[in-house]
């Protein structure tokens, strides 16, 4: 709808922007249909669709272990967890759709390799203990971000996040419970858990994004109430919670410089950003396989989607204005 997304060349832009920012300052939610800067919309579409893609691609590394889960309980939990990730992707695509982008467009961007998703899912899951570790560390890091985003000024994104946070806490807890159990388990189980922690600790720190000084979008996102905390702040919260809890299990963390400072904050050693940007750039161990799996599912599902459309066209045509 023309005029809904304002650009700085609009004659009334300054006035409307001031009203918009005042609304956010008052704690109001921006809803679909309200005026918003085009840049706000663009940033949200970028963030939300990336986030949705991350959930959907994030199903793969864990989903691969559903058929190998070692007990009835773990199998049940893992199906439910990976299913939740599909659900979260689904909620997020919905939130992005309210900004005028279609699921088809977003999927095309993902499958063509243009869209980004969280690079952590380009690491392989090598053993069963990775499942617990992903729950504890990766979901633990994700929840820190999601809790913040539940405060977001854009109504549909905020609502998706509130729902996701409510569901996601179980992901974190089941992972933590599992790793703690293995840390107290047999030597083989303990070793497997330690190996998984060693491999996932640094990627988990990286997934919270570049340092504030290197994060070009942060400032405007904070001003417009999309993000309410910086990457480094969220990362510090994550480490403060997780480092002592992991150490308390008797497992170690793969950072010789990790220590608690006099203020009580756990300080980490230097992060290997070269590796981070390399994985973001498509050179992680699993980038190609993950995308390939998504493409295959999409291609193999095409006849199914067509069949239901054909059936609907015969039986119950609905108004299709979208």
């Amino acid at each position: 709808m023309p005029g809904k997304f304002g650009t700085p060349t609009d004659p009334d832009y300054a006035l409307r922007l001031a009203e918009f920012e005042a609304r956010i300052a008052r704690g109001e939610k921006i809803e679909p249909g309200d005026w918003m800067p085009e840049e706000y919309r663009r940033q949200l579409v970028r963030m939300i669709s990336q986030h949705a893609h991350s959930e959907v691609v994030g199903m793969l590394p864990e989903g691969a272990w559903i058929t190998r889960a070692p007990s009835l309980k773990r199998k049940m939990i893992l199906i439910a967890k990976v299913q939740d990730e599909a659900g979260h992707g689904q909620y997020l695509y919905h939130a992005a759709e309210t900004l005028g982008i279609s699921r088809e467009e977003m999927l095309e961007a993902l499958l063509s390799g243009r869209a980004k998703y969280s690079s952590i899912f380009n690491y392989p899951t090598l053993t069963w203990a990775d499942i617990g570790t992903i729950g504890w560390l990766v979901d633990g890091a994700a929840i820190k971000n999601q809790t913040m985003l539940a405060q977001c000024s854009y109504g549909p994104y905020s609502r998706a996040m509130v729902r996701i946070c409510a569901e996601e806490t179980f992901h974190h807890k089941q992972g933590k419970e599992m790793v703690i159990a293995y840390a107290k388990g047999t030597p083989k189980q303990r070793q497997m858990a330690q190996d998984a922690i060693n491999r996932w600790w640094w990627p988990a720190l990286m997934m919270l994004g570049p340092h504030d000084a290197d994060s070009p979008n942060s400032e405007v996102l904070i001003r417009w109430g999309v993000k309410t905390k910086s990457n480094d702040t969220v990362r510090q919260e994550f480490i403060n919670e997780h480092a002592p809890e992991i150490l308390a299990t008797g497992l170690s963390l793969p950072d010789p410089e990790l220590h608690q400072d006099p203020q009580g904050n756990w300080r980490h050693g230097p992060i290997n950003w070269e590796e981070f940007w390399s994985v973001v750039g498509g050179n992680g161990p699993m980038n190609k396989e993950r995308l390939e799996a998504r493409r295959r599912a999409h291609t193999e599902g095409a006849w199914v989607r067509e069949a239901l459309e054909a059936y609907a066209a015969k039986k119950s045509p609905i108004p299709m204005a979208v």
Binding site: T67, A297, G301
Partner: peptide, 13 residues
């Protein structure tokens, strides 16, 4: 459960 992550559309997954 082998379909989890590989369904024809998210909703059916």
């Amino acid at each position: 459960s082998e379909w989890t992550g590989h369904g024809p559309i998210l909703e059916e997954d």
